[in-house]
């Protein structure tokens, strides 16, 4: 048994050293997102149409507090998304507004969606949800019902919808159980053919790839700003790909 132990220890040490070398090589700061995380079978017909006809593109972001950075709104992902879209679609006027619903569950947010849409008449609603529900451990079935209801309401109101799921938050992983909420959002997205921006998987990919250390205890908002910048850019790519805007622009 002792020799077995030694073998295991040696193997472990080797793995540890090898891992260290591998990490040292890809130390450069980047935040690439693998293509499969930005691919969706669903589409954004309203957005595509607006861009094609050179009409203004109005985007409404509905989300909880993880859709902003305290005291640095302009660096949060919605603002970064707008900037990135403007860069990619110079001929389309883009307005973007954010409706923060902090500490609201999907059910509470869903009931306000219709009014918001009537007031702002957006082409596209980006609905970020799930975090509050996961923290309050709302019954996952009820959560799915609420997201379902919200998506249907938005679709009947005539807007395109993108769902944005939870942040990957390794520090609170022992306290909140994200998987049921992630799964249910995926189910609703599939059922209604709505694209889902998988923020959770993307952030986890960055963490695993070493782009960001999301375990970091860093005070100050530098990390938050960098992550949101990357999220905004990834989301802009997602919007453009899902609406097939590259093709639309060329026409």
């Amino acid at each position: 048994m002792r020799s077995a132990f030694r073998t295991v220890l040696a193997a472990l040490l080797a793995a540890f050293v090898a891992g260290g070398y591998a990490r040292a090589e890809d130390a450069g700061q980047s935040c690439d997102v693998p293509a499969y995380l930005l691919t969706s079978e669903s589409s954004l017909p309203k957005v595509a149409e607006a861009v094609k006809k050179a009409q203004p593109l109005t985007i409404l972001v509905v989300g909880s507090r993880s859709s902003t950075i305290a005291s640095a709104d302009a660096s949060a992902y919605p603002a970064r998304l707008q900037a990135a879209l403007k860069e990619r679609l110079p001929s389309t006027p883009i307005t973007l507004s954010v409706e923060l619903q902090s500490a609201k569950t999907a059910e509470e947010a869903a009931s306000t969606l219709v009014k918001l849409v009537e007031a702002k008449r957006p082409t596209l609603v980006i609905w970020q949800t799930g975090t509050v529900d996961a923290m309050r451990s709302v019954d996952p079935d009820d959560f799915r019902g609420a997201v379902d209801e919200g998506v249907v309401a938005l679709q009947t109101a005539g807007t395109d919808v993108i769902l944005v799921n939870l942040q990957y938050s390794p520090r609170t992983e022992t306290m909140t159980s994200a998987p049921p909420y992630l799964d249910n959002m995926r189910v609703v997205a599939q059922q209604h053919e709505v694209p889902l921006f998988d923020r959770f998987a993307i952030m986890r990919h960055w963490n695993d790839a070493g782009d960001f250390d999301l375990f970091s205890t860093a005070h100050g908002s530098d990390l938050a700003k960098r992550v949101h910048d990357c999220l905004g850019r990834a989301l802009s790519k997602f919007v453009i790909d899902t609406a097939h805007l590259d093709a639309a622009q060329q026409n």
């Binding site: 520090r171 022992t174 205890t217």
Partner: peptide, 25 residues
């Protein structure tokens, strides 16, 4: 043990990226 860990994390961790998630504390 869990309580001890959480209490420690709650007082030492303050990352603005996760200000919402920390509400769990």
């Amino acid at each position: 043990i869990f309580l001890a860990e959480i209490s420690y994390v709650a007082t030492s961790f303050e990352n603005p990226l996760y200000s919402e998630e920390m509400g769990i504390m």
